[in-house]
């Protein structure tokens, strides 16, 4: 569904991705794990069009979308839940969800989808008139997810959804990702919490300082000593 081929990205003179190639098949969960600064977020932001690659291609559903602007990318059916959730703090919960449907033309259907999100997360419905910035971390996470869902994407990019959440909430997030997959969405998950990521995904890529050093079925990676070593220096 999504294919990256030899993607290179640089911030000014500094190359941070040294030729990334990966594939996300339709209907699955693929995770991208690695330490801080390995370039995980950079990959997502390049797919989303916030960054322009120096070379290489991004193709989605057999279409070359390299160099597309962010608003073109979301119109293609790719939505990202950014790192740290990034809800619009001074907008109400309802307005934040509306923002998810900004590029959709069927505004009536958007209203229905917002209702669906409310059913999924009743807490958001209770707080729909509250400013997003006043929500707790877990509620903001729900809102960020809900916003992405209102965009009706076929591919969902998740950047560190577990970051800064309490363990109980992390379990909920994992369950939620599985539920979204079951509804037919494809998920590309970026996580530092590798065990969480690998237990729910089908396939995993391990990233180190801008290069993919390993890739395998998630169940194989999870027991791989190399992976444990990369994380703990064991």
């Amino acid at each position: 569904m999504l294919t990256l081929k030899d993607l290179k990205v640089a911030y000014g003179p500094i190359e941070v991705l040294h030729g990334i190639s990966l594939e996300v098949p339709r209907g699955g969960i693929v995770s991208l794990i690695g330490a801080n600064g390995a370039g995980k977020t950079t990959i997502l932001n390049t797919i989303s069009g916030l960054l322009i690659p120096a070379s290489g291609t991004v193709s989605f559903e057999d279409r070359d979308i390299t160099g597309y602007k962010p608003d073109q990318v979301i119109r293609m059916g790719i939505a990202q839940v950014p790192e740290g959730r990034k809800v619009f703090t001074n907008l109400t919960v309802y307005e934040c969800l509306l923002m998810g449907g900004l590029v959709r033309r069927d505004k009536k259907q958007v209203q229905k989808d917002i209702e669906t999100v409310y059913e999924m997360f009743p807490r958001l419905k209770e707080r729909r008139r509250q400013l997003a910035g006043t929500l707790s971390g877990g509620e903001q996470e729900m809102l960020a997810f809900g916003r992405a869902l209102v965009a009706k994407p076929r591919l969902l990019l998740l950047d560190e959804p577990s970051m800064g959440l309490a363990p109980k909430m992390i379990t909920e997030v994992a369950q939620f990702i599985l539920m979204v997959r079951d509804q037919g969405m494809t998920v590309l998950l970026v996580e530092q919490n590798s065990e969480l990521a690998l237990t729910i995904s089908d396939y995993g890529y391990v990233l180190e300082t801008g290069s993919i050093i390993m890739s395998d079925k998630a169940c194989n990676l999870i027991n791989n000593q190399e992976v444990r070593k990369a994380y703990m220096g064991l």
């Binding site: 989303s48 069009g49 916030l50 602007k69 962010p70 608003d71 979301i74 119109r75 939505a79 990202q80 950014p82 990034k86 619009f88 703090t89 001074n90 907008l91 923002m99 998810g100 900004l102 590029v103 916003r147 965009a151």
Partner: peptide, 11 residues
Amino acid sequence: LDPSTAALYGV
């Protein structure tokens, strides 16, 4: 409030 996230959603 947040130009880059807004861009992600199509602004």
